[in-house]
């Protein structure tokens, strides 16, 4: 990309286009950030920069278990679901990338099917199932569906990474006396580690952002995740809308994502495009 020479005119037109796209994406976020620093009285003030800066919204949400507890839930549920999904996805991806077995096409097809399945149509049946088996409003009640949706994502990204590992390494390990499991753990998995990190990030972001299941399968703070909890914020009276705290909470749950993206930008892009060029 860097090698392509550009005329000044091209540079200006690209620059303008980029600016417009970035502005469109960033203005709502900045607006949200600005809202989160406004006092309740100034919420309807149309000026972008708050006339009076306040941390009040943040102290309010971070001082109650209404938001702290869901944050803990989000982190816990996200980490557990990611860990399990990536471990299973790596095994499945390895099989998809390396082994020939009957039903491989079906497996890949099913994974794709799950990834494509409209989640909204699953809410009612899953709700009934979770209630029937007593997992409604529990961590596992969210972890299990998250794993189910994280797996296809993981299998697809990881199998692309596995395909790039030379097969001779595995042969070498086998000749060196490794069992297939040892070859996987000692040779293949360490080499696929970058792929696993990428996949973990993608799966974690999915779990972190998920709202539909979170709002449907939880009823109390015991398992409600951060995005869902925002919907339950209440104002100081029943007639006030808690705009400030909602904005502050939205900013808080966006921060981890921003950090992730800034630090792992290259990896995330690699994960999203892996297999697109080679594969």
């Amino acid at each position: 990309m860097a090698a392509v020479s550009t005329t000044p005119r091209q540079r200006i037109s690209w620059g303008t286009a980029n600016f417009v796209v970035i502005a469109l994406a960033l203005i709502p976020v900045l607006w949200l950030a600005s809202l989160s620093f406004k006092t309740p009285a100034a919420v309807l003030d149309p000026s972008f920069i708050p006339a009076q800066w306040t941390w009040g919204n943040y102290t309010q949400i971070l001082s109650t278990s209404q938001f702290i507890r869901p944050l803990v839930n989000s982190i816990g549920i996200g980490l557990i679901a990611t860990l399990i999904a990536v471990v299973f996805a790596s095994m499945a991806a390895y099989a998809v990338a390396r082994l020939r077995f009957p039903g491989k096409g079906v497996l890949i097809g099913m994974a794709l099917l799950i990834a494509m399945f409209p989640a909204i149509s699953l809410v009612t049946p899953l709700f009934n199932i979770l209630r029937a088996i007593g997992l409604f409003n529990t961590w596992p009640g969210l972890i299990i569906p998250y794993i189910a949706f994280g797996l296809p994502l993981g299998i697809y990204t990881l199998s692309a990474f596995f395909r790039e590992i030379p097969w001779e390494l595995e042969k070498a390990a086998k000749v060196d006396g490794a069992t297939p499991f040892q070859a996987f753990i000692r040779v293949i998995a360490p080499l696929a580690a970058p792929g696993m990190v990428t996949t973990s990030i993608l799966v974690f972001l999915f779990c972190w952002n998920e709202f539909l299941f979170a709002i449907s399968f939880t009823s109390t703070l015991a398992s409600r995740t951060a995005p869902a909890s925002i919907a339950y914020f209440s104002g100081s009276s029943q007639f006030t809308v808690p705009t400030g705290p909602i904005a502050a909470a939205a900013v808080v749950i966006t921060i981890p994502i921003i950090i992730f993206v800034v630090f792992f930008q290259r990896r995330i892009v690699a994960g999203l495009t892996s297999g697109a060029v080679k594969g």
Binding site: E168, K171, A172, A173, D176
Partner: peptide, 11 residues
């Protein structure tokens, strides 16, 4: 048996 591969296949 020990084997040496064309690509060396070093870890």
């Amino acid at each position: 048996i020990a084997m040496v591969f064309q690509s060396y296949a070093l870890y």
